[in-house]
Amino acid sequence: MKRLGSWAGPGLPWIVGPGMLGALYLIFMVVPTERVQGIVQRIFYFHVPAAWAAFLGFVVVSVASALFLWSGRAAYDRVARAAAELGMIFCTLVLLTGPIWARPIWGAWWTWDPRLTMTVILWTIYAAYLLLRSFGGADEAVARYAAVLGIVGALDIPLIMISVRLWRGMHPSVIGARPGEGGLADPSMRFTLFYTGLCFVLLFVWMLLVRLRVLRVEDEIEAIHRRIHPA
């Protein structure tokens, strides 16, 4: 991870920065306005990539947690922690941008659509994970507890997906199939979505590396501290 940081670190900001400007240009200046939904549909180009980044965060948390329990190396624990914090940010973005779009299109800020339900459950798992870490303090055991939660949370995802689908699938749907996603008719729309998605993922990686460096420095300071004052 450190090697990856020094390799990708200096270059990455200069890809993400202009890349995101390009994404904004595509979103507002290039892509045609969706015919049915109008201008508000453009929020999709933020909403969906943020969801990808949030989901990526969850994957990183669970993989790093498993590696930490398996190897016991603190570096994996730091990765899991940083990824959880970032995943939380992106998950919150998803939950904020969704209702802004849903209000004019669905006529309601919120519905218990399977995806919404699932996102909000994932958000609460992230919240529990971060609270566990902040309540637990810097104890080494807390890292293990958090890793257990990271793994169990990942195991829960398929069950959550199945149950929320079945739950809503058996009810008469108020709104009908979610419009938009399948209906990105214009190829430039699809290109914009994937391009912005790539930018968000790179932004995620960059922020992860920045956060990881801080966590690593904190740990090393702690180690030096303990060496000077062996309490």
Binding site: G9, P13, G17, W206, M207, V210, R213, V214
Partner: peptide, 9 residues
């Protein structure tokens, strides 16, 4: 973000 990155380094 860039300034955070620099300061971290």
């Amino acid at each position: 973000l860039l300034s955070l990155d620099r300061r971290g380094r």
